[in-house]
């Protein structure tokens, strides 16, 4: 039994597998579909937002009903920054990230204690509070009319944001990809493993020496930065911020996105964003205005049949294709069935 190669097992887990490479090739291939750039841009931003929620929900197990707080904060900061300080997109992105990092850090202390219900209420409360502030501070935010008059400078001083979303989508996709790589690193690091451990069993996590609170603060702050960047992208590529960025609907939708794609797995948010937008498109064409009925139905059905079913299906497809491929080419990759992505 001692022929198990532990170093190999340890290192093989974070290796890139073909579906991952295919996924990103396909994503960048979308740049060749100019007519879809606007919706693709929305998908990329939603994916980043969902990735952010997945980091705290799927990995650290914090149920948040108010993740839009950070999306909205990032969106407003980026908008205000562009109007009052500087129109450079990347600087705006950094400003939003920094501000949301601070906001995330401060609010993280509120979600450390308590049950799922208290966490859920506090996250919801923070988002509602911010929404109310944005609503009342109309002199700054434009209130219910939204923040208008945002003009963005050229990206890197070279690329102008065009009406067809070409620059926007490229920009969002690249940001998403870079942040995804970072998140992927994080998830496969000791830090990432300790988050899963905390989600699985906080009591034991502390008993193997994991400082639970500090880790939760760190990941909550990290996720807030991601959500803030998603919000900033939203503002910069649409040049408008509406109150709805802070709404409950946003928080609930992004939760659904993560659930559709599968929580606790990096591609969940990405695939979910794609699925969600397609569903939204299709359902609102079917029954405009009432499409949330079907979204609700899907949620209920998904929970009743078990959330992990679709993901398991995906896994078996991946396995099947891998096996077919190997039997076709006759190659044998050792230890290819270890761990998840």
């Amino acid at each position: 039994m001692s022929n198990v190669n532990v170093p190999h097992l340890l290192l093989s887990r974070h290796r890139w597998r073909w579906p991952e490479i295919a996924f990103w090739l396909a994503a960048f291939a979308c740049l060749l579909m100019p007519s879809k750039h606007l919706i693709l841009n929305e998908i990329a931003i939603l994916a980043l937002f969902a990735l952010s929620l997945d980091l705290i929900l799927g990995y650290a197990g914090i149920v948040s009903l108010g993740h839009a707080a950070f999306l909205g904060a990032g969106a407003y900061i980026a908008g205000l920054f562009a109007i009052h300080v500087n129109g450079d997109p990347l600087l705006g992105l950094l400003a939003a990230a920094a501000a949301c990092g601070v906001l995330g850090f401060i609010t993280s202390f509120l979600v450390l204690r308590g049950s799922d219900l208290t966490r859920l209420m506090i996250t919801l409360g923070v988002a509602l509070l911010l929404g109310e502030i944005a609503n009342r501070a109309a002199w700054l935010t434009g209130g219910a009319d939204g923040l208008q008059g945002i003009t963005m400078g050229r990206l890197l001083g070279l690329f102008e944001f065009d009406l067809y979303g070409r620059t926007s989508f490229t920009y969002s996709l690249v940001v998403l990809f870079v942040l995804f790589l970072l998140a992927r690193r994080l998830i496969h690091s000791p830090f990432g493993h300790s988050l899963t451990a905390i989600r699985d069993n906080p009591l034991r996590a502390a008993a193997v020496g994991i400082p639970v609170k500090r880790r939760l603060i760190a990941i909550y702050t990290f996720a807030a930065i991601y959500a803030g960047i998603a919000g900033a992208l939203l503002t910069q590529t649409t040049q408008f911020v509406g109150l709805d960025v802070l709404s409950f609907q946003r928080s609930a939708d992004v939760m659904l996105v993560v659930i559709i794609g599968g929580a606790g797995y990096l591609y969940g948010g990405l695939i979910g964003a794609l699925g969600f937008k397609f569903l939204q498109d299709w359902l609102s064409a079917l029954t405009p205005q009432y499409w949330h009925f079907w979204i609700g139905l899907i949620l209920v059905a998904l929970v009743l049949i078990g959330r992990d079913r679709p993901r398991r299906l995906l896994h078996s497809v991946q396995k099947y294709v891998t096996n077919r491929w190997q039997s076709l080419t006759g190659s044998k990759a050792a230890g290819s069935s270890t761990g998840g992505a």
Partner: peptide, 27 residues
């Protein structure tokens, strides 16, 4: 069927019901 499920499942399930109720009444 939901009592034994996680809080996250319960939240999702009941939000789903809310969405359905809102849209149905609207309709």
């Amino acid at each position: 069927h939901m009592y034994d499920k996680s809080h996250l499942d319960q939240v999702l399930f009941s939000i789903g019901l809310v969405f359905m109720a809102v849209a149905a009444i609207d309709y």
